[in-house]
Amino acid sequence: MSLDIRNLHKNFAGQVALDRINLRIEASEFVCLLGPSGCGKTTLLRCIAGLLAPDRGEIRLAGRDLAAVPARERGFGIVFQSYSLFPHMTVAENIGYGLRIRGAESSRIAARVRELLDTVKLASYAERYPGQLSGGQQQRVAIARALAVDPQLLLLDEPLSALDARVRDELRGELRDVQRSLGIPTLMVTHDQDEAMVLADRIVCMNRGLIEQVGPPEELYARPRTRFVADFMGHGNLLSVDWLQDAAPWLLDTRPAGISDAGAVCLRPEHVGLQCDALGEGQVTDFTFMGNFKRVQLDWKGRNLLAEVPARTRFERGDRVRVDIDARDCAWVEA
C-alpha cells in the first residue's frame, strides 16, 4: 500500500501554501514533513487526511484517487498536538470509538482496546478519564485510538511538541517501535529536526510551500542541496564561491556542474579540524561549553567560522589555531 501525491497545489486567499508537491510514501515507511512554521507542512498533512481540499493535483492511495473521498471514509488514523481526546469518555471508550462508529461487535472492540492498551503501555488506565492523565499518557491514548481502526496511513501532526523534553524523548522511541512493529505507513509533521532525524526513514524538508529536498536523515544532514536545508538541518558554515577563491581554492575543484557562482559550500562544524598552533591563520574569538563538546567561533581568513571540538580540548579566547578542512566533508548547495 503506498500513497502517491502528484503536483499538489493549494492557495489561501492568494497566498501559496502548497506548490508543486510530489511525494510518494511506501508501505511501512516513516516519513517526516519538516520545516519552519508556515512552510505548508500542516496544510499538506490536512490535504492528505481529507480535512482540506487541494486546489490542484491528486492524491492516490494504492492507485485509487482520494479526491472524492471525504476524511471519514479514508480510513486513516490521526494524532494531533493536543486536545483531541473526548473528555467525557474513558481511555478505553476513546480508543474504541472508531470501531464503535464502524459498528464492530463489543467483544471485538474490547479485545482490540486491551491489545492497544498493552501496545501503548497503559493497561491499567482503561477506566480513567483523559483529565486524569498526564500529557504524555494522553498522547499515547490518542495514538492508540488512531491505531485501533487499523489505519491504512497514520498521520501525526506534531504529536510530541506539547510535551516536556524528557517525556518527548521517551515517547519518540516508543512511537518508532510501535510504527516499526506494525509496519503502518506513517507521515509526521514536525518543526524539530532532531525529532525528524531520530524517527524518519525519509525526511521531506519544506519551505514556503515547496519541497526543498527529500531523503534519508543522513543525506539531508551531510549532503543538503539548498542553503535552506543546510541551515535548517543543523549548524553549519556556508562558504561562498567568492570567499573560497581567495581562502580555499582547492575546495572549488569539488564543485559539481550545475552549481552557479551563487552556490556555496556547506561545512558542518564537527568537520572543521582545529589544532593549537601559534603560527595558525585562525584565531579563537569565542566558545561555548555544550556538555559533550565545545562550540568554537573563530576568525579565519577574514570570515567567521563555526567549529565543534571535544569538550576536553583546551582553548582560550585569542588562541591561534590551524584549520584543516577535508574536501570530502563539503557539500555544495544551490543558492
Binding site: P70, G77, S84, Y97
Partner: peptide
Amino acid sequence: PVQLEEAVGVLGGGVLQLLRDVYLP
C-alpha cells in the same frame, strides 16, 4: 477543540456523531 472534531472526521464520524460525541457533551 477543532482537533477533536477533526479526529472524529478521520475516525469515520459524521454530523450526527459530531453532535452526539463532541458538541453535546
